[in-house]
Computed example of a mutant assay.
Amino acid sequence: MTPTATFTAAELEAETERLFKAFLHVDCTPGKSWDYDACRKFAPLTLEINRLKKEKDAVILTHSYVEPEIVYGVGDFKGDSYFLSLKAREAKAKMIVFAGVVFMAETAKILSPDATVVVPDRGSGCSLADSLTGDQLRKLKAAYPDAAVVCYINSTADVKAESDVCVTSGNVYDIVSALPQQRILFVPDRLMGENIRTELKRRGVAKEIITSDGTCIVHDVFDAAAVADARARFPGLKVVAHPECTPEVAAAADFVGSTGAMMKYVKTSEAPYYLMLTECGLVGRLQVETPDKHFIGGCRLCPYMKLNSLEKVRDALAAPRADQIVTLDEDTRRRAARCIDRMFELAPRD
């Protein structure tokens, strides 16, 4: 840890206590600790970042998959892509720091064009979003000219700009069902596309779902055999999966839903054990926010999300390098904004 500001002993001790209370139940990342000594090391940086936020009129958006010291130490809002997209649209701050991956920071720039949007590490890509380019999507559109183009929010700005409507894993079924077109070109997630096809059939909705071939390197590795083994070892276990998992895993789970929906399910259900088939950062949040719940192994780490760090957040906030600043061609931004606005129009209200 390399803070560049100084604080009094009392300030550091108070911040250490705050962090320790927040991290008390976190134990989900192999090789990392959030004990009192770790919190003491975090404290100078979290204090510095929180001071810089006020000076810069900045807001920090933190995805649930990044490390707890970012989520609970400096984040103003924490959640999944959809929730953070809403917060990006509502943000009036001069600067937005997006602790997540690059496509999420692009979404923030699409929705808050006047803000300076920065990403802590430009290398924080996404196997799913990076699986399809705007040029590739244009070729798919030419092959299926009668299809409505529906892009998952885990996509680049170029792909959003070429799409009719954006969706999340939480609102995709309602939005696709509402579209007048019978043929749907869903990009970029092949596995989610397969799960959409299955769920819409179960609901009695006749749609032809065509997909591109992207997958998430976190969620595509889970398998149904491991689920069966876990059930045998932990009677009463509830299995919670993301729709980016394979159809076989989705079928074996007790609940399939978005990041936000998974959190709600765990918080409102009762079970002796939970197996979370998603990224470990979400399990860390649940450990903090539902300390009475018991989680068994199974989560996977996203190497891209873990590129975020307090030091990188601080540097991007204090004096962002050119590669940390998100810029978009205005025509691309406007077309992508229409795609996202269409989602907000069609998404069901809670």
Rank of each mutant, 00 (worst) to 15 (best):
K141Y: 01
K56L: 05
K21P: 09
P145G: 11
V249W: 04
R40Y: 12
F20W: 13
V117G: 04
A38T: 11
Q324T: 14
E55C: 10
V239L: 01
P272V: 03
M305I: 01
E11N: 02
S155E: 08
K312T: 09
V117T: 08
F103C: 00
S155K: 01
Y82A: 10
V227N: 06
L200P: 03
M263D: 00
H219N: 06
E17D: 15
L286C: 03
E244C: 11
G123M: 01
K312P: 05
A14L: 07
V102M: 12
T211I: 06
V227A: 06
A261W: 05
G79V: 08
D164E: 11
A253K: 01
L137R: 10
S258A: 10
R197T: 14
S169K: 02
F103R: 09
D35T: 10
E15M: 05
K267L: 12
L61D: 09
R285Y: 12
S81L: 01
A143S: 13
A253Q: 02
E13A: 14
A178I: 03
M1K: 11
F42W: 05
R333H: 06
C216E: 11
A252T: 04
A157W: 06
K312I: 09
H219I: 04
A322D: 15
D80Y: 00
K264D: 15
Y265T: 02
L310G: 06
G125R: 03
K87P: 06
G123K: 01
C126H: 03
K306W: 08
A230D: 13
K54V: 14
A9V: 04
L47K: 01
Y82T: 06
V117Q: 04
A157E: 05
L185T: 05
E330T: 15
A206E: 15
V71L: 13
L191E: 07
D76H: 08
C126G: 06
I196D: 01
T133N: 07
K264S: 14
K92E: 15
D57W: 07
G134W: 10
L45M: 07
E11G: 00
C39H: 07
D229L: 14
R51N: 09
V256D: 05
E90W: 13
D223M: 10
D213G: 13
D164G: 12
A58K: 01
R338S: 13
D76W: 05
D76N: 08
S127Y: 10
G170Y: 05
P320I: 07
I340N: 05
K56P: 02
T116I: 15
D223F: 00
V102H: 15
A142M: 12
E199H: 11
V165E: 13
A161T: 11
R202W: 07
Y144W: 03
A225I: 11
F42P: 02
T168S: 12
T4I: 02
C339Y: 10
K238G: 00
A251I: 06
G123E: 06
V326T: 05
D57E: 15
S124W: 03
